[in-house]
Nucleic acid binder design. Sequence first.
DNA 1: ACTCCCATTGCAAACGTGTGCATTGCTTTG
DNA 2: CAAAGCAATGCACACGTTTGCAATGGGAGT
Lengths: 337, 337
Amino acid sequence: MRVSIKDIARAAGVSHSTVSRALSDSPLITAETKAQIKRIAREMGYTPDARARSLVMGETRTVGVVVTTIADPFMAPVVQGIESTAYENGYSVILASANSDPARELAAVEMLQSKRVDGVIVTASRVGALYQDHLGRIGVPVVLLNNHSEQSGRYLYTVTVDNQHGARLATQHLIELGHRRIAYIAGPADHSSNAGRMEGYRQALTEAGIPFISDLVAQGDGKMDAGMRALPALMDLAERPTGLFCYNDMTAIGVLRAARQLGIDVPRDLSIVGFDDIAFASFITPPLTTIAQPQFEMGQQAMQMLLTRIRQSPDAPISDILIEGKLIVRESTRRRA
Amino acid sequence: MRVSIKDIARAAGVSHSTVSRALSDSPLITAETKAQIKRIAREMGYTPDARARSLVMGETRTVGVVVTTIADPFMAPVVQGIESTAYENGYSVILASANSDPARELAAVEMLQSKRVDGVIVTASRVGALYQDHLGRIGVPVVLLNNHSEQSGRYLYTVTVDNQHGARLATQHLIELGHRRIAYIAGPADHSSNAGRMEGYRQALTEAGIPFISDLVAQGDGKMDAGMRALPALMDLAERPTGLFCYNDMTAIGVLRAARQLGIDVPRDLSIVGFDDIAFASFITPPLTTIAQPQFEMGQQAMQMLLTRIRQSPDAPISDILIEGKLIVRESTRRRA
DNA sequence: ACTCCCATTGCAAACGTGTGCATTGCTTTG
DNA sequence: CAAAGCAATGCACACGTTTGCAATGGGAGT
C-alpha cells in the first residue's frame, strides 16, 4: 500500500497533524522535528496525495482543455502554450478531444466537472446559445479560444484571432502587389471565423475601389481537399484571378498542389496568401505568404486569463482578448506582371 | 457551494448512503426511491466528485502522458491515439510536456504521482538506468513509447518503432531503384532510434554487396536545419550520392529545401527517402517517399498495453511491442538514370 | 400469535489531508 | 513562588464518496 502521513506519523511517534504541518513548513513545528519528519518522509518514499488535499482545500490546481483534435497543426502549439504556462503556475492540464462531436464535447465537459478542475479552456468549439448556458452553469471559469459562434456571455471569456483584421492585411497585400482580381476560398460556412475573414476581404476590396465579385468566392471547409477542389473552377473563369486569399494554410496547400497539377505556376501566374502560419507554411514549395497567428502566445494568454479568473473574484471585470496576426511575406506572392 | 450526495439526501429525506446506492443502481434500493432520488439529483444539478470516489475506490481512472512537446508532428497523432482509446475505456489523460528537460520530466512524473494516476505513458524519453529505477518505484505501470535508451526492465514496458526494419526497407528501396551510392543523414547520436536506423541501413547495403562508406554518413539531429546543413557536404564529395536516406521526414524536408537552393533536382539528381510519414510528408514538393509509422495506432496500442497492465495482476507476462513501419513510395525517389 | 426471514434503509468507518481548538509543559514575570 | 503566557503538539472534524454491518419493518409460515 501507498505511504500516507499517518504511516509517517507512526514511524516518527507523532500525530498525523504534526506531520502535515511539518511537511508544509508550518512555523508551529520545531526545526528539528521538521527535519526528522522530512527525513522519514523521504526515506519512506512519501508523495502527498493531491486528491485528498484538494478535497479539503477546495481546489485541484488542474484545468481542463477540450480540443477538437490535438493532431491539428494549428492547435498543437496552442495547447503547448497552455500547458507551458499552466506548469509555470503550478497547474496541470487534463486533455480531452471531442473530434467535432458535440456529444463527446459534452461528455468531456462532464468528465472535467467530476474531476473538479478549477477552470476549463474550450478551443474551436461551436458553442451554441444552449450549450453556452450549460457551460455557464459549470461553476468554474471557462475560456473560449477561437470559438466559432459569436456571443461571449456573462460567464464565458474569450481569446480570439482578429479574423477581419488578418483578412484585410492579406487582401491589402495582394492589392499592393498590383492584383485586382482577387479570389477567396472560404472556410466552413457556419464558423464565425469564416465570416470575419470574408468581411475583411470585402472591406479591403472596397477600400481600394475594387468591386466585390461573388464568382470569385469559392466555398471550402478549411481542409486541403477543399483547396484542391476549388481551384479548377476559379481558373476556368473568363477572367482568371491573379491573386488568391485562402481561409487558412491547409486550404492554400491544397491549392498549391492543384496548381501544380494544372500547370499553374505560383507565384508567376497566381499569388497566394494563406492564414495561420502553421509550422509547415514555410517548408512547402513555394514557402507560403500568410497571416501569422502567435499560436503559442495565444495559448499562454488563454491560460493566463483563466488563472486570473480562477484567482480573482468572479465579478471582477475581464475583457475579452482579440489577437492580431501579422503578414509574413514569403514566396507564394509577387508583383503582378 | 457545490451539491453533494448529502444535500440530495437531505432533500429526499433519506441517508446519504441510500443516495449513493440509488445513483449507482444498487439492487438494494426500491425502484421508486431510485427514480425519485435520481430526479432530485438531476434537478439539483449534481455531478459526482471523482476525487472523493477515487479516494475510496483506489483508482482514479486517469493516466498521465509525458511528452517532450505536443507540438511535434510525429507525437501529436500518437497522443491522439492515446487519448482516444483512453476515452473509450472511461479513462482521462493528464498531459505534461517536458521539453527535453530531465528536471522537468522528473517534476512531471512527481506531479502525476501525487495526482495518483493509474498509469503513465512516457514518450521519446531518454530514461537512463538511474531514472528508470525511479520510474520503476513509481508504483503504477509505466509504458515507454519510443524511448531512446535500450533497456526495458522488469517494471517498464515498451512499444517501439522497429527502426532497423524500417531503415532496411528504405535502403532496399533505393537499391532496387538502381542506386549504389547511398548516403545517410543521421539523427541524434545518443538516441537508440538512430543506432537502429543506422544498423538497418548498413545491413541493407551489406546484403546487396555494397560497401559501407563512412563519408556517406552525415551527422544530424532530426531537425530541419540539420538536413539543410548536411546536404552541401554530401554533394561536394568526389563521387556524389544518388540516393539518400534520412533519419526522419523533418531532416528530409531540410534536405529538399537545401537541394532547391543548390539547384539539385529531386528526384532526378537525388532520390530521397524519409522516415515517419508525418502528416506533411505527402504535402511537400515533391511528395516524400518515406517509411510510414502508424502513429495513431501506436498511441492506441500503448494505451491498450497500459490498460491491461492496470487491470491484470502485476506479474502477468506482457511482451514489449515492436511496430513495423511500411514503405510509402511517392515522388522523391526514382530509378537511377 | 409468535417466530423467522427478507427487503430496505441507516450507521459508521474508511480513503488522506488540512486546521481550529484544546491540551500539555515549560519559561517568564511580578 | 505562583500565575500567566507561550511554544509545541494532539484531538477531532471536515471534505465527498463507498460499503460492511446493524437495525427496522413487514409479510409469511407454523
